[in-house]
Simulated scan of single mutants.
Amino acid sequence: MKSIFQKFAVFAVVLIITSCSSTPDEMDPLSPDPVSKVDPVGVILSIKEGMLMPQSGTNTTGMIELVSDEAGKYFLRLGNDFKSDFHTGTVTVYLSTSSKLQLSESGSFQKVGIVNESGEHFFVLPNLPESKFSHGIIWCGAAGIPFGYGSLN
Results as ranks from 00 to 15, higher is better:
88 T>G: 09
82 F>I: 09
90 T>Y: 07
48 K>F: 07
23 T>Y: 14
81 D>Q: 03
101 L>D: 02
131 S>F: 07
73 K>D: 12
2 K>E: 10
106 S>R: 05
75 F>H: 08
150 G>H: 04
147 F>T: 00
120 E>A: 09
91 V>S: 11
80 N>V: 08
27 M>C: 07
137 I>Y: 02
9 A>G: 00
84 S>L: 10
30 L>F: 13
64 I>N: 04
48 K>M: 10
135 H>P: 05
100 K>T: 15
89 G>Y: 05
31 S>C: 13
68 S>G: 08
78 L>H: 06
107 G>M: 05
49 E>H: 14
24 P>N: 09
52 L>R: 04
70 E>P: 10
100 K>D: 04
144 G>N: 05
131 S>Q: 13
140 C>Y: 07
125 L>I: 10
98 S>D: 13
98 S>W: 03
61 T>D: 01
71 A>V: 06
32 P>C: 11
6 Q>D: 09
77 R>N: 09
84 S>Q: 07
80 N>I: 04
146 P>Q: 15
119 G>T: 10
138 I>S: 09
113 G>Q: 08
45 L>Q: 14
120 E>M: 10
59 N>F: 00
86 F>S: 09
102 Q>H: 03
110 Q>N: 01
140 C>D: 15
152 L>V: 12
8 F>K: 11
109 F>H: 02
24 P>E: 09
54 P>S: 08
112 V>L: 05
85 D>V: 05
15 L>W: 05
140 C>I: 05
88 T>Q: 11
110 Q>C: 02
23 T>K: 13
28 D>Y: 12
53 M>S: 10
35 V>R: 13
18 T>M: 12
74 Y>Q: 08
128 L>Y: 03
133 F>H: 02
34 P>D: 13
8 F>S: 07
80 N>P: 01
136 G>Q: 02
